[in-house]
Computed example of a mutant assay.
Amino acid sequence: MKTPTATPPSTAASAVVELDVSRIRAVTLDLDDTLWPIWPTIARAENVLQAWLAEYAPATAALCATPGALREVRNHMNTTRPDLAHDMSALRRESIRLVLQRAGDDPALAEPAFEVFFAERQRVELFADALPALAFLSSRFPVVAVSNGNADVHRVGLGAHFRAALSAREFGVGKPDPRIFHAAAEAAGVSPAQVLHIGDDAHLDGVGALNAGMQAAWLNREGQPWSHGPQQPHTTVADLLALCRQLG
């Protein structure tokens, strides 16, 4: 098991604070790259989608295999559909629809094609510390998932550990906007000051939680330096079980 990453030493320009376990009444938790690695999951889902397209929309499959084609489609969607910026499902579905149209296949195939991708996207491979940490946390606190992605904690098989789950797609804004953190605190039945937020992304999770008035635990599996301003997370750990030990 990895040992906790040391908090950077205090300087005159830093606002180093310590975790106050006594005021934690609820936990909010990121999903992607906190409980499982996301990019292997996405790569596998894209491979399954490509195999499906090869059978049902071969012209689209050929276009998708063209170097740079999918990147261009994603860039086009990001530019032309900023309204979908916080809805990963809709962005993926409409990207599939666009490439179907460009290839001359039936754009109605976007719906079943997306479902193939989405089903595989829910088949995650958890980090070794994820289940024991979830069992520990959910036995002591209400736990609320807060994600900018489109994982479904119930389809993933972890729903029993969560009081609620908030996604940017459903809520309308994502991390680091304080509003989604405040909504998560409300779902847990506590004030933001009584919440410990746990996540791997220093900006989205760490800075977002701090700005929302929560305590922040930065899950820093790779030992990266904190480079997001003088205000620092209340604790930095290399794995979730190290955090559980701090919470006692």
Rank of each mutant, 00 (worst) to 15 (best):
A69E: 15
A62Y: 05
F141E: 00
F162D: 02
H154L: 04
N75G: 07
S10T: 14
D87V: 08
A119V: 10
M214I: 03
A133S: 15
A193D: 12
S10K: 13
H197Y: 04
A26V: 01
Y56W: 10
M77G: 06
R221P: 01
D205S: 08
V190D: 04
K175Y: 05
R121Y: 15
P67F: 06
R23M: 06
M77N: 13
R155K: 14
A185I: 04
P58M: 13
H161Q: 08
F181Q: 02
V146E: 02
E46K: 06
A130D: 04
R102S: 12
Q50P: 01
Q50T: 02
P233I: 10
R25A: 10
A45P: 06
V16R: 12
V144Q: 03
V16P: 00
P4D: 11
S22L: 11
A165E: 13
A90L: 15
G248M: 02
A108D: 15
P37K: 08
H203Y: 15
Y56A: 05
P4S: 08
P9W: 12
V124G: 01
P192V: 01
D129V: 06
A15Y: 11
L63P: 08
V116W: 08
Q232P: 01
L134S: 02
A242R: 12
S167W: 02
L98V: 07
W39S: 12
A135C: 13
C244Q: 07
A62F: 00
P233L: 01
G199Q: 08
D20K: 11
